[in-house]
Amino acid sequence: MKSYLLKRLLYSLLTLWLVSLFIFAIARILPGDPVQGVLMASHMGIADNNLIEGLRAKFGIDQPLPIQYLVWVKNFIIGDFGVSIASGEKVFEMFMKRLPVTLELFMGSAIWSMLIGFSCGIISAVRRNSFLDHLLTVGAVLGLSIPVFWEGIVLIYLLSVMTHILPPSGYVPFTESITGNLLAMAMPTFIMGTQGAGLIARYVRSSLLSVLGQDFIRTAYAKGLSERQVLIRHALKPAMIPVTTVAGLTFGYVTAGSFIVEYMFAIPGLGRMGVNAIFANDFPVIQATLFIVAINILAVNFLVDVLYGYLDPRVKVRS
């Protein structure tokens, strides 16, 4: 088990290194010059070469690209994410300020998508081919195929514009008003979790169905276990094995969704920060955001691998 985890960890680090190269490259390939952008705002576009060169030197982008990359990686390792070109703020501080907001959104959507996904999937599998199963299947397929932005627009129209049940956008900190916070976060959380819920429901259904058709399920029935006992004691654990992988992948979907959702609902989280940074060509921020996202996705997948080893005793042998 230990060597298995160590191997997974090494793979994750290798992936992370490749991702860092990729992120660095993307940030540089984006058209436009961040320094020009800043000067455009502060000096009405009138700036001499000295000023430009000075700013370039200040942000270290006058250096050759390999040097820039090494400096970035070195600083990142010691916890220095750099300074935003657009605002001059420390990226790390910008980050910490927005983290709780995004975390709330993530946790909320993860919990609801898992809760809904698992229960719908299990019901569908147990009552397969019933009317309820068909209904849930339609729901799940809709959920995972509706684009996040479209779902957002429709829900805002239905719940805010037409019925005024929920605020159309904006963010209320938890410390200010708990109900206000929950109301503001309800719609974005729901939207962010929709795809995951649909995906998980589909996978839970098919995985559970294939497990329920196995010989050992018949053995369990022959022992005198009730349907419920068979499901809980024998079917769920093996059925979770492929689903954990999907749940891990869903995390990627959710992250992508958070960029759109936070922007759409004007929620001051990391996704919005990332989008703004891309518009401003603010590459210290772009790099840091993307890299943190990558680390998180890898961490989640590592966790999935750990869970795998726990769920499936055969993994230890295979590794």
Binding site: F216, A222, G224
Partner: peptide, 24 residues
């Protein structure tokens, strides 16, 4: 259910698949 496994028990053909792989 009270008869299955208690009064009448069954041994299946393929021991490779008849035991749950994830339970000891």
């Amino acid at each position: 259910l009270s008869i299955r496994g208690d009064q009448i028990a069954m041994i299946f053909q393929d021991p490779m698949t008849a035991l749950n792989p994830v339970l000891s």
